[in-house]
Design a protein around this nucleic acid. Sequence first.
RNA 1: GGCGACGUGGCCAAGUGGGAAGGCAAGGGUCUGCAAAACCCUGAUCACGGGUUCAAAUCCCGUCGUCGCCUCCA
Length: 465
Amino acid sequence: MELKLYDTYTRSIRTFEPINPPIEGCSATVGMYTCGPTVYDYAHIGNLRTYIFEDILRRVLSINGYEVKHVMNITDVGHLVSDADTGEDKMEKCARRTGKSAWELAEYYTQAFKNDLQLLNILEPVIWCKATDHIEDQIEVIKCIEEKGFTYRTSDGIYFDTSKLPDYGYLARLDVEGLQAGTRIDMGEKRHITDFALWKFSPPDQKRQMEWNSPWGIGFPGWHIECSAMSAKYLGRFFDIHCGGEDHIPIHHPNEIAQTEACYGTRLANFWMHGYFLQAGDEKMSKSAGHFLRLRDLIEKGYDPLAYRFFCFSALYRAKLTFSWEGMESSQKALDRLRLIVYELGDPGEVDEWYKNQFIEYVNDDLNIPRAIALTWEMIKSDLISSAKKATILYFDKVLGLRLNEWKPKEEIIPEEVQKLIELRQKARTEKRWNDADMLRNQISTLGYEIEDTPQGSRVKKKKE
RNA sequence: GGCGACGUGGCCAAGUGGGAAGGCAAGGGUCUGCAAAACCCUGAUCACGGGUUCAAAUCCCGUCGUCGCCUCCA
């Protein structure tokens, strides 16, 4: 079945074909590079939305029969606080603030990030690559760009001269002259507003925690070069899909493309895909503005990380999604219901072909997960036999990744005090002393437990605060 | 100021030329000693005003509104 994906580069939906045809007897391998985190702080749930989108993409590629070589970078150096290339390095700044070393911080936030991915059931990249582990590779690419004549030197670094690429910024359809006219940022010694640093020199008066020797002097690589260097190293000079957040469309990705075009003459990736922002109420979530929620915050409020994953399924990846606690509650409830239904379906039998094909059609239509979810509910309500429903939904879950097969109703540990009251109430009920029974139910409720009477007897569960 | 996106039932949102998905909430019902849970049922002239068309939520123009980018950001 055809897989259609939206490509930001051409601003159109295109049929996906892998660049490298399959070797006989094997599935085709698809190269996928996803811009990873800058590890100077925790990820917020808006960041995580993008990684969930990329995970869905990867899983959809898989069910289409592709082997996915998924690479994600960890940016642990060189990401400046300003695109004017005049600000500080985020890692160094954070290190100074906390009194820890930049290396320790990078390690700490990398682990925190990986932990979030795991909680969200996001498949681990096949290759993780850290910017600081690839300094030599980055220097090589900068040398190559320099040899081709695209660089110039200022007092604080080596810069990329974007005016030498006629189609610079094509990905974002940048109006370079318009930008130039409306200059709002400090140009420093840059020749053009869109020029960016490839290599920054360490400040002469200051010893940086992270710095390396290079043909141009002691310093550190610019933010964009790592992606060009590492993607070429692991996936080749032209690979299948490059992903990131929508915020990368105007700056980071055009710069990556510029570097790669200058050095290798390719536009880096065949498909450019971008996840759109999670809105926090009226505005977007932002680290710099200081208002953001972490996955941890959701967990502390009693939500399951996978309920957040499910929440992200309510909108297309290419549309903004508004976060609210009401929405979170809605997703948690829906997921709880789905889990119980799936659990009670019993053992899986045969996957239903019609629903399977319908599902693939929806997810292959530029990852229309909301529609796939709607189909899931329809399938659940259909008159298929239980074993077919179970097998079919477990097939869906290869893409949805909700761990539906692992879920079991929680065994409640009931305190003895509550257990006694339940027994008393049961006795009152058999003796039809309804007033006593209701009173006991109130007492149990005060202790934080809810009672559900079923034909098999009373079931108790802890109330959610 | 420049560029761009969006405006679908109470909330989150699919649908982009011909029957307005789905989830949550709400109301009604079945069940229950009463509840709860579960299940069933119910609802939208698609921001507004023009236009194109046999036919428009869907295309075109205008108005209003919201948001994003042009500072770092997923």
